Computed example of a mutant assay.
Amino acid sequence: MDSPRAEFYVEHNPPARRAETRQYVYDIGSYHYNWHPQIELLVILGGKVELCAAGGVAVLGRGDVAVLNSNEGHATMSLEAGPGASSAQALLLHLDPDYVSSFNSGVIPHFACRSTPRTQGNAEFRRLRAMSARLMEEGLKAGPAAAARREALLAEIVATLFESFHDPAVFPVALMGEEGYVEVLRRATGYIEEHYRERLTLKQLAQRAGYSPTYFSEIFSSHMGIPLSEHITRVRLAQAVRMLGETDLTITDVARESGFPDVKAFGVAFKRAFNKTASQYRRQLRELAERGVDLGQVDETFHERFAHPEEQLGDHPGPHGGGVSAEEHRRVLEQVRELGEQAALVGERLARLADG
């Protein structure tokens, strides 16, 4: 009796995926505490950077790679300038959570991805550096071939993250939510942004939204990815960090002006978020200034001066009006290319060794 014949025949009918990304090179200044739905892939191009995320602090250097997960509160600060720059620089890629979760049954994954001096040379980090660099370069090109290569690189980056860094034991805080609550949550978060100095309660915000406190709390947590109380605390911390760097207000005054009920509550929240006290952070800023690291100048154009994949070489304005000279643009692009070339060379050497 003949055995069944194996046939190499496969049909692939993937779901429609929205592969939206944002990628750019930017100067890192002092802490700008923020969080967002996008998954962020960060590659340090030059200098040293202090990364604060998930209540921990790490120092990253040139070539280090880190992932900041969806709605993970984080802040970065330049500790040492890169060659020819006024501060450290990073290549950043924002991945749309809809796109990434489409490979994971609609669930936003958690990636435990952060290189160290010991692991920076591992194959998975080399791949992420090389593909991030190539993605940036393909973004500078036009035409269908470049667009196809860009989408292929994006898919390969996501595949590497799932293959090497996916942590299924960490259940995501939120699933992708329905669109019906977007406007309600937009109004709620807008109100918090305007009234963070005031006493804000769940009951008060739920009444404004037209829901019971319990239901509104569930909506907020499931769609925003963090509890309402945590969101309010983060908004207040973001304001406090700005005031610590830009004003001479006392710690007590900073706590009051940023909406915390007292300096003790502010101290607990700040230490939990940044693993240091507010006084230690302010002292750190002053020590950096004494060493010639001018974070104030960088902060004035934070995320306004960068080499964007949509731009061409030459003098041009950024999307917020900050000019980038041709010389500076060439320098940062050279840093991107160099990282990609180094990773490719190491990969070629390993391939030759594997082939004998």
Results as ranks from 00 to 15, higher is better:
Gln38His: 04
Ala206Thr: 02
His32Asn: 15
Thr119Trp: 05
Phe171Val: 09
Ser258Lys: 06
Glu11Val: 03
Arg18Tyr: 11
Ile39Ala: 04
Asn71Gly: 03
Gly347Arg: 00
Ser217Asn: 11
Val100Gln: 06
Lys271Leu: 04
Pro117Tyr: 10
Leu339Asn: 02
Ala146Gly: 04
Asp96Thr: 05
Arg17Leu: 12
Asp96Met: 09
Glu179Trp: 05
Ala326Pro: 06
Gly190Asn: 13
Ala147Thr: 10
Leu345Tyr: 00
Gln284Ser: 11
Glu40Gln: 08
Ala169Lys: 14
Glu300Thr: 15
Arg186Phe: 04
Met136Gly: 05
Gly63Cys: 02
Tyr281Glu: 12
Arg134Phe: 03
Thr301Ile: 15
Ala81Ser: 09
Asp299Gly: 13
Phe171Glu: 12
Lys271Phe: 04
Tyr181Asn: 08
Gly190Met: 09
Leu42Glu: 14
Leu339Ala: 02
Glu50Lys: 10
Leu175Ser: 11
His36Lys: 01
Asp315Phe: 09
His94Thr: 05
Glu230Pro: 04
Leu91Trp: 11
Ala16Val: 14
Asp262Leu: 04
Ser30Glu: 13
Thr116Met: 10
Gly323Val: 12
Asp299Lys: 15
Ser30Phe: 13
Gly322His: 13
His316Leu: 13
Glu40Leu: 05
Pro83Asn: 11
Glu156Ile: 06
Gly47Ser: 02
Ala146Ser: 06
Ser101Asn: 09
Pro37Ser: 03
Gly177Gln: 08
Arg186Met: 10
Leu153Val: 04
Val59Met: 05
Gln297Tyr: 15
Gly121Ile: 01
Leu249Gly: 02
Glu257Ser: 08
Glu328Lys: 05
Gly267Val: 04
Glu310Pro: 06
Arg236Pro: 10
Met131Cys: 07
Phe270Arg: 02
Asn122Ala: 04
Asp27Trp: 15
Gln284Val: 07
Arg305Gln: 15
Leu202Phe: 10
Ala240Cys: 07
Ala88Trp: 05
Ala145Gln: 07
Pro319Thr: 13
Pro172Glu: 07
Pro309Thr: 14
Arg5Phe: 06
Glu194Ile: 12
Ala90His: 11
Val25Phe: 14
Arg234Trp: 04
Val293Gln: 04
Leu161Phe: 12
Glu310Cys: 12
Pro97Glu: 03
Ile157Thr: 10
Ala289Tyr: 15
Gln23Thr: 15
Asn13Lys: 08
Gln38Tyr: 05
Ser105Leu: 00
Gly180Trp: 01
Val346Cys: 00
Lys48Ser: 01
Tyr215Ala: 10
Ser87Gly: 03
Thr201Pro: 13
Gln312Pro: 09
Glu138Ile: 09
Gln207Lys: 13
Asp294Met: 09
Arg256Ser: 08
Thr301Trp: 14
Glu20Leu: 14
Leu135Phe: 15
Lys48Gly: 00
Pro227Leu: 06
Ala6Val: 12
His94Ser: 05
Asp167Cys: 13
Gln335Glu: 15
Ala19Asn: 14
Val324Glu: 11
Leu92Ser: 14
